[in-house]
Design a protein around this nucleic acid. Structure first.
Lengths: 325, 325
DNA sequence: CTAAAAGATGTTAGCGCTAACACGTCCGAG
DNA sequence: CTCGGACGTGTTAGCGCTAACATCTTTTAG
């Protein structure tokens, strides 16, 4: 860094300011420094930055295995958000369902000097993690989960509204008997989604919704799909509360010798990688996960308190159509 | 750290020695210090360690979106491996297929002081990434890909052997007409797996293998499955060269009104999350991805040169059985 | 045209740790 | 004994950067 400073004819501190996007640097100076940086290919040393900020400027990202499908997006978003506000991202593996490990992960982040922590699902609804965070006094942003404790900031889509919208879509297509596959009972999005779907159905005379239990896995979707297809009258559409289960429902439909969307429309929720790769591709609700993670990093950095629902997006694909009769 | 030193009645340097397992510390002193560390829950600041070690002690992990399913495992493994040898892990998003971004990601790591880099698929077979790495002089360990350049260390399972073993399993069950779904042509595991399967088939008189193209996606598996099922005589088993495609094949089997494994056995490869979540669960080959990533970090840290195939594991689940006739 | 405010840059100190060397203290060989 | 070395521990300096404050320069108001 001092080399850069010398080459640009300024002090190291000014270089630091330029690198960190400090506003109080004259345009001419900034350009001079940036030019030298570009020419030399200088990149600041992350370790030194962390150290110098000692206690400040770091945030943590917890992650647990089950959030598999999200991880790449969460990571990218958080990394980018952290970079944009000049924060360092400490990444720490945790393990949902193993309270000791969850606590240890939080403790590590705190020991690492994180002032804030991003908590993706399913950790955001885990008492062990939440309590440990509260104890350290770190700020926390939970993703896709409600703010279960005071002081928590929640970034999530409006599950109720999104489910309502999806069910509305199915009803508008003309479906009157619709199956619904619920998610895990211990996640608060589950009742929200079901409720949204139910309210949409109740608003249409002659429409009925049959709900079946599920646990967000492909397999549970497959089984719930089989149960729904065995009903008389048979539903003409099935709305599963996540994509994995919707894929399972799709398999059940095919296994029953029926086609999608010809005989049965199928809808999912989340817009994970799976939604666009199964056949037919799934009509679903997109949660802007990367965007949420980026926002979380920015909130933790700037100390902002932006709460409230994140906008979701209805994604129409091939798996829904009007009933054939 | 100085707190620990004070509490234990020693100098900070001695604490450092204890933390780093330096041999020249009297047993009594070590115990005293360790006791204090345990009681206080002290965790050394990785950033400061790295910094003090002047430039050394950092490795990078590149990741590209498509490696979605692997990411969580690769990350956990790499993080743990890095921690175990006291390295700082720099994580850098890249984008396979965008040469400029790939080069930029590598450049960033090099500038960040990484002396080595872990390259998960599909970046390990990308010229842009590989050339950029060579230019920086960093050591590199590629995961699940061959060492396409001199000096590269490759950590991969024996694709040929594993495919041979899986096909052998199907033949042993009594299958004689077996479908095979290939992966993307630009990944070297593809011919290896096909070849392994082919050789196993050739060793059994009366056995035949029909290969279909695929590109590792669920959808391509579904389509290849449909083509294979349309053949006469129809295969009694289908071996797809990854789990996503195997799941697609499963869907095709069900769509054709057939059952698995009753009518058609299906086998996958990789043992991703999907393999255990579809119904029926997939017989597949497990690649110890987390283990490989951990090993990569350790190799880069210790400067070891351990090469050679990583042991894979044959996982028998529900999707394969003897043919019904 | 001057003084004070505002803006831009420099200086000093230190983040938490570890190399490198300096300093005891105890040992056994001569 | 007495000296060289082995051993255990402390001291000093500095890794590359940034907070906080100090200083210098420009602007603005009267």
């Amino acid at each position: 860094m001092s080399d850069i400073a010398r080459l640009a004819g300024v002090s190291p501190m000014t270089v630091s300011r330029v690198v960190n996007g400090d506003a109080r640097v004259r345009e001419a100076t900034r350009e001079k420094v940036e030019k030298v940086i570009r020419e030399t290919g200088y990149v600041p040393d992350p370790a030194a930055r962390i150290l110098a900020r000692a206690g400040g400027g770091r945030i943590g990202l917890l992650y647990a295995n089950p959030s598999n499908a999200y991880l790449a997006e969460v990571l990218s978003g958080a990394l980018e958000g952290a970079r944009s506000v000049g924060l360092l991202l400490l990444i720490e593996p945790s393990r949902a369902g193993a309270p000791d490990e969850e606590r240890e992960a939080v403790r590590r982040l705190a020991a690492g000097g994180a002032q804030g922590v991003i908590v993706p699902p399913p950790l955001g609804e885990s008492d062990a993690t939440l309590d440990a965070i509260a104890k350290t006094g770190m700020k926390a942003v939970v993703l896709a989960a409600p703010a279960l404790r005071d002081g928590l900031i929640s970034l999530r889509v409006d599950d109720y509204g999104a489910a309502h919208e999806m069910m509305r879509h199915l009803l508008d297509l003309g479906h009157r008997g619709v199956g619904f596959v619920e998610g895990r009972r211990d996640q608060s999005a589950t009742p929200d989604r079901r409720h949204g779907a139910q309210v949409a159905v109740d608003a249409v005379t002659g429409a009925t919704m049959w709900a079946e239990a599920g646990d967000f896995t492909y397999r549970s979707g497959f089984e719930a799909g089989q149960r729904l297809l065995a009903r008389t009258p048979r539903p003409t559409a099935i709305f599963a509360s996540n994509d994995d289960m919707a894929a399972g429902v799709l398999a059940a439909v095919h296994a029953a010798g029926l086609s999608t969307p010809g005989d049965i429309s199928v809808a999912g929720f989340d817009d994970t990688y799976l939604a666009a790769s199964v056949w037919p591709t799934l009509t679903t609700i997109r949660q802007p996960v990367a965007e949420m993670a980026r926002a979380a990093a920015v909130i933790l950095g700037r100390g902002g308190e932006e709460d409230g629902p994140v906008p979701h997006e209805f994604i129409a694909r091939e798996s829904t159509a009007s009933p054939s009769d």
